[in-house]
Design a protein around this nucleic acid. Structure first.
Lengths: 153, 153
DNA sequence: AATTTAACTTGCTCTTCGCAAGTTAAATTG
DNA sequence: CAATTTAACTTGCGAAGAGCAAGTTAAATT
């Protein structure tokens, strides 16, 4: 199985290179679902509220896997299911996602001003560490359930 | 002049809302150019290495302005020029961009492993503060010139 | 006055997106 | 154990967005 010759790299800037993977409306949402909602299956991602089309979802999962950010392994107990998991490289996206979350919560007047945001900003490191701990221990408990946070403080 | 009825919000998640602005290959690169390269004009953005098409650039600047992330004001000394500047909302993207940069530098084996990355990770707060200071003082000195860093440490 | 420059815009082609429907293999149900 | 359901995709197609080259406008320079 041969790998496609990488399309082309626009520049050597790490921001640019990162955006060649995450520069779309969906990819980071999948990472969010893995990281803070504890989702693992195609179906869960497909139903996670923003309404991604299934062909796009399949494409993004494939790209995330070939970028080494997620792995796909068939579920032991139900062989129809595929369990997607983050690699170290993927878990390391937690700080990016957290900052994006904090920025959005602060600046997008959409819903609740959410005083939680300030608390989260103050506990950045603690949150990241907690995320890492859970992945290390294969602890699937999500940090957020139906939009409500379950934070370790 | 009436404003278009905002297209539609996919969900109330701040990550999702943020990605409706930054979920493309170009928008954050413009912010990067403003934030760390000290660029201010259409031409500078257009020539900044990744090769954005001018129609796309115009479109993204318009969207950034209508999202309140940049302002566009004609240059005093040369009235052909438009000077784009970040608002507070835009400057607050510095942490997002820094984390994206650090992630890319660590995980994308493209160029130099760049020992600077670790130094930057250790001095996050200092870098963000320096960025803020420069914008407050209208100090246009870039943090990076032709790919080479000019850091305050 | 003629030329150059900055910031766009326009037109056209090509790729990607989004939606609905279809496929396949594995599990569950009657 | 045959029929149904479920999970994870794939396919087809119209619509939207991206990329490229060329054109426009107004201000500055020569």
């Amino acid at each position: 199985m041969l790998r496609k010759p990488h399309p082309k790299r626009r520049s050597a800037c790490p921001v640019s290179v990162s955006l060649e993977i995450f520069g779309d409306r969906w990819t980071l949402l999948i990472v969010r679902d893995l990281l803070i909602r504890g989702f693992r299956t195609f179906k869960e991602f497909a139903q996670s509220g923003e309404g991604i089309a299934t062909n796009i979802l399949a494409d993004r999962l494939r790209k995330l896997a070939s970028a080494g950010i997620v792995t796909a392994e068939p579920d032991e107990t139900d062989r129809r299911r595929v369990s997607y998991r983050l690699t170290e490289k993927g878990i390391d996206l937690a700080p990016v996602l957290l900052e994006l979350l904090l920025w959005g919560a602060r600046h997008q007047r959409s819903l609740e001003p959410c005083g939680l945001t300030d608390a989260m900003a103050r506990h950045r490191e603690q949150i990241i560490q907690e995320v890492r701990r859970r992945w290390k221990n294969r602890d699937r408990t999500p940090l957020q359930v139906d939009g409500e946070w379950r934070l370790p403080f």
